Amino acid sequence: TRVETATETAWISLVTALHLVLGLSAVLGLLLLRKQFPAHYRRLRHALW
């Protein structure tokens, strides 16, 4: 049972790390898009919101 708990903890930390990386890359991508293609960014924002 101890090994299972350790594996679960590892999976949870892995998933958390993946979510963090995905969130950060999404934010960075949006910032880059905003900087380089303001028109595209505006259109995207209108489409999303």
Rank of each mutant, 00 (worst) to 15 (best):
V3T: 04
P38Y: 00
G29M: 14
Y41A: 15
R34T: 11
I12K: 10
L28M: 10
G29N: 01
L48R: 05
L32F: 04
R42W: 09
R45T: 09
H46I: 05
Y41L: 08
T9A: 15
K35I: 09
L20T: 10
P38H: 09
P38Q: 00
T1I: 15
E8M: 00
H46S: 12
R43W: 10
P38G: 08
R45P: 07
T9G: 15
G23V: 15
V3H: 00
R34D: 07
H46M: 07
A6D: 02
L33I: 12
S13N: 09
I12D: 01
L20D: 06
Q36N: 00
R45N: 02
L20W: 00
A39D: 15
I12E: 06
T9M: 14
L33M: 12
L30E: 06
Q36M: 10
L33N: 03
V27R: 02
L14C: 05
V27H: 05
R43A: 14
L44I: 14
T7W: 14
Q36F: 05
Q36G: 07
F37G: 03
A26V: 14
S25I: 02
T5A: 07
I12N: 08
R45Q: 10
R45A: 08
I12V: 13
L32M: 02
F37C: 06
T16S: 11
Y41P: 08
S25A: 13
A47E: 01
E8N: 04
L33P: 05
A17D: 01
E4S: 12
P38C: 00
R34N: 01
L48C: 14
G29D: 02
T7A: 15
E8S: 07
S13K: 08
A39M: 11
V15D: 03
V3Q: 06
K35T: 06
H46Q: 06
Y41S: 12
R45M: 10
T16C: 09
V3N: 08
S25R: 04
E8I: 04
A26P: 00
A39I: 12
L32D: 09
A39Q: 13
L20M: 12
T5Y: 01
L18H: 00
R34S: 08
V27N: 04
L28G: 01
A47D: 01
A26H: 01
K35C: 04
L28S: 03
T9E: 11
L22Y: 05
R43S: 12
F37Q: 00
F37D: 01
A39H: 15
S25Q: 03
G23Y: 07
V15Y: 10
H19Y: 15
L18Y: 02
L18E: 02
R2P: 13
T16G: 02
W11V: 12
G23K: 09
A10L: 06
A6W: 07
H40G: 12
A17V: 10
G29T: 15
R43D: 09
L24I: 09
L20F: 13
L24S: 00
S25K: 00
T16D: 07
L24H: 00
L20Y: 01
